[in-house]
Amino acid sequence: MRDPDTDWVLPLSTFVLALSLSVVPLPGVVATFRPDWVPLAIIYWAIVAPERFGLLTAMWLGLAADTLTGSLLGQHALAMLVVGYLCLRFHLRIRIFPVWQMSMSVLFMLAIYEFVLFWIDGAVGRTVPYVERWAPVITGVLLWPLILGTLDRIRQDNKARV
């Protein structure tokens, strides 16, 4: 079995899944509440394995998101960089937080992520509805314990099998 500390399959599939989920077509109302899957993925991996995933990973994922959603090239990349930076800077602290406190940090980071996107949209003159912009932050935070639990479980199973 692969060593989970150098395994590439799980992180890579998380990222691909996150990118796919962020463009899966959803009916109108549900689409408003689509969580920010890509930043959630980078938050997880930058916190548990900061020596392997960091700013460059965040930027590449952001550029992929830009291409997929047809937004300004670099818009999602910049927002992802900010999230990645915060994760790396504070990963030692965040890692020992209890789940609810961790969720608060995630709330904070997703809010900053949306704010950067919002700010760039405003700067280049694209207007977006106000309230809908913040819905993904809420759903993202509510999903965080689930994501954390699932990925931690898979990694532990992998480790046990080595």
């Binding site: 700013l55 300004l72 090239l73 670099g74 818009q75 990349a77 910049l78 960089l81 760039i120």
Partner: peptide
């Protein structure tokens, strides 16, 4: 520093793209 460099990079990407 790395954060700053990459930020500048993506900002310039956006400027050119816009």
């Amino acid at each position: 520093l790395r954060f700053l460099l990459l930020t500048v990079f993506s900002l310039s990407l956006m400027l050119v793209d816009n």
